[in-house]
Design a protein around this nucleic acid. Structure first.
Lengths: 118, 118
DNA sequence: CCCAACTATATCCACCCCGGATACAGTACT
DNA sequence: AGTACTGTATCCGGGGTGGATATAGTTGGG
C-alpha cells in the first residue's frame, strides 16, 4: 500500500513468533495460535508460502534441525528480519496512534466536538 | 485471517479518516494522504471500491452534498462503522503489544536472553 | 471565451495474498 | 500393525490492491 513493501500480515506474525527462539514451520503455526490466544490461525498454504518468501527476502535462515526429526526445517530470524519486524511494528503503532487521536477508543456515539471526559 | 472479518487495511484508514467529519471519496483520498504524512496513498480503484463495500456493510451512509458540486458523493460514518473501526483499532493495538512484548522495539541485535538496558 | 489542469467517480486488468483441500511421508503411541 | 498426529509442499478459488482508462464537471489564467 506504500513504499518499501511492508511484510504481509501473515509474515509479520511469523516474524514476531520467531523473534526469540528458532522454530520449524509447523511449530510456528502452533506458536502463532498460542500467543494470540487462538485469534490468529494461519492456513497451511499461507504458512509455508510465507516462510519461503521470508527466506528469499533474507528475513529468516534455515538452521540445523533441533531434533532427530528429519522432516523439520528450522528457521531463525536474521538481523534483516528483526529490522523488518521492528519497522512494521512502528508502522502499525503509528496507525493505532492515528486512530486513537481520531477519538476511536471512547464510548461516545459521535464525539464530533471538543468533549472532555470527566 | 480470523473471525468476524476485520476491515481491509484500506477500509480501516478510510474509517479513521471519516471519524470526525463527513467527506466525499476524492477528499478522503487526500485526507488519508495528509494525516499519514504521505505514507499511505490509496489508488483510485481501491478508494471507490472500498467505499462501496463500506456502504453495503452499513459502515457509512451517503448524506447530502456539502457544496454545489453535483459530482460529489458525501459519506458519513454510521455507529456500526465507528464500532468496526474501534474493534480493528483494538485488534491492531493487541498485535503491536504482542510485538513489543517480544522485544521488537529495542536496539539490541538479538536479545535472546534476559538482558536489561541500563 | 477557451483551453488546460484539476476534481470526481467508476470500472477493468494484472498481480499478489489468503484459507482450505489435497498429496505424501515420517513419527508416536497403543 | 494400525491409527492419529506431525510436517512440508502445492493447487485452486476468492478477494484486495494499484494503476490505467473512461467520462465528465469545475476552476482559473491567457
Amino acid at each position: 500500500m506504500t513504499s518499501p513493501e511492508p511484510p504481509t500480515p501473515a509474515v509479520f506474525v511469523l516474524l514476531v513468533a520467531l523473534s526469540r527462539v528458532p522454530r520449524h514451520g509447523y511449530g510456528l503455526g502452533q506458536e502463532v495460535q498460542r500467543m494470540t490466544d487462538g485469534r490468529v490461525r494461519l492456513g497451511a498454504g499461507t504458512l509455508y508460502r510465507s516462510l519461503q518468501r521470508m527466506r528469499v527476502a533474507g528475513w529468516v535462515e534455515e538452521s540445523g534441525s533441533d531434533t532427530d526429526d528429519e522432516r523439520r526445517r528450522v528457521y531463525s530470524l536474521t538481523p534483516a528480519g528483526r529490522s523488518a519486524a521492528r519497522a512494521e511494528t512502528r508502522r502499525l503503532a503509528d496507525l493505532v496512534a492515528l486512530a486513537t487521536e481520531a477519538g476511536l477508543l471512547e464510548d461516545a456515539p459521535t464525539p464530533r466536538e471538543d468533549e472532555h471526559t470527566p
